[in-house]
Design a protein around this nucleic acid. Structure first.
Lengths: 224, 224
DNA sequence: GTCGCAATTGCCCCATGGGGCATCTATAGA
DNA sequence: TCTATAGATGCCCCATGGGGCAATTGCGAC
């Protein structure tokens, strides 16, 4: 029992560690390619989830990697049995557009390549795939995913702060951000100077800013 | 004499008007395609400059459209005699990366398509080109060019303002933007409070801002 | 050498921002 | 009914920002 627990813990730690470096979903109907890519990314310290079809990916990927943090990207063959890679892309873009998609293809027409890019594909690798180019592309894709996640997190955090403001506080802050003085704000909202000061003070405390400069910067990142 | 002058004036006005709507450089070695596209874009109110090769474009395009304002894009066949479209692209990106490039190709390999996108191509149209798709792509490309130009102009204008500041004034502004009080700034620069106020005042006047909010916003757009 | 300009500073005054203390009202819950 | 919370306000005090007036210094240009 303790052994099992220990093993599980280690495995989870390992997964968390690899996840922090990056998750690569691999989507190819060829089992040989899947296992080859799995080994490749595993060796490189990434966490790899291989799937044989778009349907399998949509069904199982979310659960399989739900507890893993970190940037992620999708490496996907264009021509798959069932739902094609391109169809999958538009499906994915609706949900989490934070994940770059790298397409691979051997005998693909130019039409597919154009469509993949037009619909927001991150890159297109033609088979035979050059390993260095592949690793390079995955690396930059994960970097992009990382920065998107960071932005997302920051945006969420700021939005959470803004939500804590009362309507009155938000009104005052908006006028502060128009460069008005407290007196002018009071006139506009038909409240006393002292009241404006109170709202302003409360808002600044809730938002965690110490001066107007910080307040302005915050407001540029998250509308108030 | 007066007639000639009048004609020239009208022509220039016309060109300026069309230029404001957009300039489309067309690059194709087929004279038939050049004239067809010329008529097409001319009818749509754009100003069109056709060239038969990349070399001709590089040699003559700048002079030909030097006096024209407005957004611009390049519509370019991939396979050209002499310098290819892809080679031209890297040449152009070095100079003015404000112009989106739309590639066209009939019998092009996927490799070319991938390379065009990888190196920053805006779009890739496969022949036979759908006219609506073409006009649509040109339209969005010009919109992109326009917004880039706007950003560029704003950035230049702000930079011109910042250049007017003396070193001392810039130092003070930077510290203001760190949220320091005048007294703290004085301590850090080893100057008197009154001196800080003077520099601050001069800087705000030169930058045309009335309060710290505007100053902060300006500094986000152009580093000081 | 004189002029203009940047930098510096002191004195002084007023406007504005920040905030403690206390009060009052209204409203949604416990 | 009692309480917590948001909103509003007055009084008062201090810190800070803004800015007029005047003077000094140093440097490059004419």
């Amino acid at each position: 029992m303790s052994n099992v627990k220990k093993l599980r813990t280690i495995s989870q730690e390992d997964e968390a560690k690899r996840g922090a470096q990056g998750v690569v979903y691999v989507l190819d109907d060829d089992p040989g390619i899947r296992s080859a890519y799995y080994r490749l990314f595993d060796l490189d310290g990434y966490l790899c989830f291989p799937y044989e079809s778009a349907e399998a990916f949509l069904l199982r990927a979310e659960d399989a990697s739900a507890h893993v943090r970190g940037p992620r990207c999708l490496l996907c063959d264009v021509s798959l049995p069932g739902m094609s890679g391109l169809e999958l892309q538009s499906e994915i873009l609706d949900r989490q557009h934070t994940m770059p998609i790298i397409f691979m293809s051997g005998a693909s027409s130019e039409i597919e390549v154009v469509r993949a890019y037009k619909e927001g594909g991150y890159a297109f690798l033609l088979k035979p795939v050059d390993i260095d180019e592949l690793l390079d592309t995955v690396s930059t894709a994960l970097a992009l995913s990382y920065s998107r996640q960071q932005e997302q997190q920051e945006s969420n955090a700021l939005h959470a702060l803004v939500t804590q403001l009362t309507e009155r506080e938000k009104s005052v802050v908006r006028l502060v951000l128009q460069g008005l003085t407290n007196q002018q704000i009071g006139d506009q909202l038909h409240i006393a100077l002292r009241t404006v000061k109170v709202h302003r003070q409360h808002a600044m405390e809730k938002l965690g800013v110490n001066n107007v400069v910080e307040l302005t910067r915050l407001s540029e990142k998250s509308p108030i």
